[in-house]
Design a protein around this nucleic acid. Structure first.
Lengths: 130, 130
DNA sequence: AAGGTTATGATAACCGTTTTCATTTTGACA
DNA sequence: TGTCAAAATGAAAACGGTTATCATAACCTT
């Protein structure tokens, strides 16, 4: 505990708006938008810090865009992959693929590597954009 | 053709030195080292440009490090995944996993997404480091 | 309310990468 | 081989996302 931010909820709720990965600056803008009136949004620094911490704590998922930008997303389940639409950028989760376990075991046996982990991301064109 | 660089060979041969992904600046340093004497190495700009182009042409593979840095590697086969050692950073290729095709087809059916592609990277601890 | 701890905001620093542009090299062709 | 246009190069500046800095503000705990 202790290491919480006053803005955790706003950051998380911004991430929940729309099913896509968002950059830190997008999150910052979303929060500013959500506050209609003269209310002061958190600074960019704070949003960076908050997202960084939430990612470290496992509260949000982080990936790198093709351009190297860091993108965040709030995820529902713990075991899943991401499927990004190349056209509209929306992302959905797909359930963890059982087959990957088999591949992992085979790679481990084949290579002698230990403590194998992996990252798997899908992309395609979603039904709406197709 | 036509769009080649005078330094393609040196860049590629630097990438072949050691089986690990290398940043652009590492490649630049490797080339400078390889030229013992007073010979002038290519500028950093040129190495950036060359690697960028080689990646676009599919001559080298590019990934992003955890910190967002772009890393390059010369790869032998066209269909493979990478297995990075978390301890020493060396990378080896593992043959393309047949199971992934099945997963891909299932995800396509399940989600209605078209033109699916994916990226799959493994990491672990190699036999030498274990 | 006092005092120490932690979070925040504004700004500067960082760092890898890209852009710019003047200069050099290259290649085609007479 | 000399000329000329097109392409590549180097040096430095610009860029963009991210992190560090530090003074100020908010937050406990007593």
């Amino acid at each position: 505990m202790g290491a919480g931010s006053r803005y955790d909820n706003e950051v998380l709720s911004a991430l929940r708006r729309g099913d896509r990965f968002r950059s830190c600056q997008e999150v910052h803008a979303l929060i500013a938008d959500a506050r209609g009136g003269p209310a002061r949004p958190p600074s960019l620094s704070t949003v960076y810090r908050t997202l960084h911490r939430l990612a470290r704590e496992g509260e949000v998922d982080a990936i790198h865009s093709e351009e190297g930008e860091r993108l965040y997303r709030r995820c529902a389940t713990s075991s899943h992959h991401h499927l990004l639409c190349r056209a509209c950028g929306r992302a959905r989760e797909v359930p963890h693929a059982r087959e990957v376990r088999a591949v992992l075991a085979r790679v481990e046996r084949l290579t002698g590597f230990a403590e194998l982990s992996y990252s798997l991301e899908f992309s395609g064109v979603c039904p709406d954009c197709d």
